[in-house]
């Protein structure tokens, strides 16, 4: 069964009660600054349907994890959200406007940045092509340098000289400069050590305050640590939606839903 998350999510018995109360109370006292609505999203390649009428909404202030095995449409869904892929039909609106794609994608691996340029030059570039003035970019980078010492440490370094973990963190913080209302992270914790994971959690906690944060990851410990919502994709739609879950709960649901053996 596909849940229409927009309408049915709140009534789902799987939905964590405490999270719902929190979300509703928060929405009452402080309406979300950013909201993404997905309506009847379909995507098929030739005859094969990958997404089957996904309807859901994302609000700033929360981290959403899309959980699914490889080949179930996870990449397709986040690619459509980020504008890299066109849906067969359906609608996505950012704060009520369906003519824009206000997302920033942090791709897996060492991608996302210009290696022969410094972190500062990358920040300036990303800000510029996002329509920001020098003053606005400087204000953001100054803030980030104060808030995240790791960013300050590498600010004048060439991207190619950074460690793998530093590249991931810098790529993530670049989204602040782009000022997108939604950040999509693909396997963001992959290959990171504990120190970098800890920094990453801190950054995501900061980022989600006024942005929608969407994760696609197979690192279930990380997903359990960071996610406010866990949505399980199967047969082209979200079959199960939960609030916060422990790693054990996550793995148990995963096994039940996808009938696979996991460590």
């Amino acid at each position: 069964m596909c849940y229409n998350i927009h309408n049915d999510f709140r009534n789902s018995k799987n939905f964590a009660h405490s999270t719902r109360i929190y979300k509703e109370a928060r929405a009452f006292f402080a309406p979300p600054q950013n909201m993404i609505e997905v309506k009847n999203l379909y995507k098929s390649y030739r005859e094969k349907a990958v997404l089957n009428g996904v309807t859901c909404s994302f609000e700033s202030g929360f981290v959403y994890s899309i959980v699914a095995p490889n080949g179930t449409g996870k990449t397709t869904f986040i690619s459509i959200l980020s504008g890299l892929l066109a849906p067969t039909s359906g609608e996505i609106s950012f704060n009520g406007d369906n003519s824009i794609k206000d997302t920033y994608v942090v791709l897996a691996g060492e991608k996302n940045l210009y290696a022969k340029n410094t972190v500062k030059e990358n920040a300036m570039y990303i800000g510029r092509i996002s329509g920001k003035t020098t003053k606005e970019i400087k204000k953001q980078t100054d803030f980030l340098r104060n808030r995240f010492p790791v960013y300050n440490d590498v600010f004048d370094s060439l991207v190619e000289k950074l460690s793998y973990g530093q590249k991931r963190l810098v790529a993530l913080l670049s989204s602040v400069i782009a000022d997108s209302s939604c950040i999509i992270m693909d396997e963001v914790s992959e290959g990171l050590d504990m120190n970098h994971i800890s920094l990453l959690l801190d950054m995501i906690d900061y980022l989600k305050k006024d942005r929608v944060v969407i994760l696609a990851s197979h690192d279930y410990e990380f997903v359990a640590n960071v996610s406010d919502y866990n949505w399980f994709l199967k047969d082209g739609c979200f079959q199960k939606m939960y609030g916060r879950l422990s790693k054990d709960q996550l793995v148990s649901i995963y096994k039940e839903l996808y009938t696979v053996m996991e460590d």
Partner: peptide
């Protein structure tokens, strides 16, 4: 291949 093309795709320009 470098993963920076999407930055330009999502640019304001």
């Amino acid at each position: 291949q470098r993963g920076t093309f999407y930055l330009k795709m999502n640019s304001r320009y």
